[in-house]
Design a protein around this nucleic acid. Structure first.
Length: 456
DNA sequence: ATAGGGTTAG
């Protein structure tokens, strides 16, 4: 037996840093020295590293296990940003209750929550679109401090995403009245809100105000909003002038700016100009990213050029597109009735290292129902429910109705069982099945179906 | 990573 030099707490950190696989990192953390039974003295940094890694990978069971271990480590006072991370991980996974729980547990880690973690929770609720919970939380803000610019920015974003333009301006006024100066982020949110509502002139007026009245420099975020706004009213000359102004102000044109322009040009049918900007992007040393690929894929599909679309999927632009790119191609294939090709691409996604998401499953399931491919649709639905994704209610009803119409009782039984388990039986499901039971001549099979429904 | 910008679907 070779005797290894035991891993030191310091070495564990560097090993955790370089370990790409979160599961292996977790194993390493929980058992750093397999052949030594002396208790390991973990450093605070190693906790931070493993929690962040697990959170990013949405491995929440393991993350909670480490957090509980950390809770018992009375040697440390845990720095607040770690909790802000944890809260935002739960937000990204759309788990608002867990985010709240993480926030409430902060004192048990010998740390007192300040406005920072309060804002993190507020933002988590916004991400999960829990607007009522946001108001309830705001009524307790005084326990944690006085609302700062960040708090207001989150609240204004919430108004923006609900389309409450007037309320957003009220908050903007309120923050100034209370002596909280708006910052460049505030103006990013507000210009976005204005441009989204086609109030481009007003957005430019606000930019002037921001520079003259508030002495703030317009940054790339604000410029991107403005460029998108002027593109949407079809004024591309203006868009290019804004782009030139950015360069004059020594701002680097990044992929987001280029993607905005290329996408808008394609949408306006200016294909050549779009590709010209793509060339300029590359010549300027700005590398296309996944979104660039997706924008190109949309255009190729619109031109019915699936060969080129697949080339981009294969990494023609030097980057691999993400799940959105796959969803676009699958969506267009479906729209053209090439559902079998769409299913092929879907099955090829794991090999291509891209995990299908809700949109992938919904797109496929919707299309298969529409093209009455019930057997294939049933398989997709099963997998979808297994992964916890929820199908569109409309397609689901179409599917159940189709099965009833075609008398496919065997499949119907399986599906109803799955729907029942997934808690997805709605009133329409019942209506379809009940009306079939009542109109069919051969009553034996429907009775079986009815039994399943009652048992579910 | 305390808050803001670009792509699909709905």
């Amino acid at each position: 037996m070779v005797s290894w030099k035991p891993i030191s707490p310091f070495r564990l950190c560097s090993l955790l840093r370089s370990q790409k696989d979160p599961s292996l990192a977790f194993q390493l953390f929980t058992n750093p020295n397999p052949n030594h039974d002396r208790p390991f003295r973990y450093s605070l940094l190693s906790y931070d590293l493993i929690i962040t890694k697990l959170g990013r990978a949405k491995m929440f069971t393991q993350m909670e296990q480490i957090l509980q271990q950390l809770q018992r480590e009375t040697r440390f006072q845990i720095p607040e940003p770690l909790f802000c991370h944890v809260i935002s991980f739960y937000a990204r996974a759309r788990l608002p209750a867990r985010a709240l729980h993480a926030f409430l547990s902060i004192p048990s880690f010998r740390c007192s929550p300040s406005l920072k973690s309060f804002n993190s929770l507020l933002h988590a609720l916004l991400t999960c679109r829990q607007f009522n919970a946001m108001s309830q939380l705001m009524s307790r803000v005084h326990h944690f401090g006085t609302p700062d610019a960040c708090t207001y920015n989150i609240l204004i974003s919430a108004c923006s995403s609900q389309g409450h333009v007037e309320r957003a301006w009220k908050l903007f006024d309120e923050m100034r009245q209370r002596g909280v100066p708006p910052n460049v982020v505030t103006f990013g949110i507000l210009t976005n809100l204005l441009c989204k509502n086609s109030l481009v002139q007003e957005a430019f007026k606000l930019k002037e105000d921001m520079e003259r009245g508030f002495r703030l420099k317009t940054n790339v975020f604000v410029y991107t909003n403005l460029i998108k706004g002027v593109c949407e009213i079809g004024d591309f000359d203006w868009a290019f002038r804004v782009k030139d102004e950015m360069v004059r102000n020594n701002l680097r044109l990044d992929a987001v700016v280029y993607n905005t322009l290329i996408n808008a040009l394609f949408k306006a049918g200016k294909k050549e100009e779009g590709f010209r900007v793509l060339e300029e992007m590359k010549n300027n040393g700005c590398k296309p990213d996944a979104v660039t690929c997706n924008v190109l894929i949309v255009e190729h599909c619109r031109q019915n050029n699936f060969v080129e679309a697949y080339r981009v999927l294969d990494g023609k632009e030097g980057v691999k597109p993400d799940v959105v790119g796959y969803n676009v191609v699958i969506g267009w294939l479906c729209k053209q009735g090439k559902w079998s090709k769409a299913v092929d691409l879907f099955h090829d996604m794991p090999r291509r290292q891209c995990a299908p998401d809700v949109v992938t499953y919904r797109t496929l399931f919707d299309a298969l129902c529409q093209w009455m491919q019930f057997a294939e649709a049933g398989l997709i639905l099963e997998e979808m429910i297994f992964k916890g994704f929820v199908p569109h209610a409309l397609s689901l009803n179409e599917f159940v109705e189709g099965l009833c119409r075609e008398g496919k009782f065997e499949l119907l039984l399986t599906v109803l069982n799955e729907l029942g388990r997934g808690g997805l039986c709605n009133e329409e499901t019942w209506k379809s099945v009940v009306s079939m039971v009542c109109t069919r001549e051969n009553m034996s099979a429907p009775f079986e179906v009815f039994d399943t429904l009652v048992l579910a």
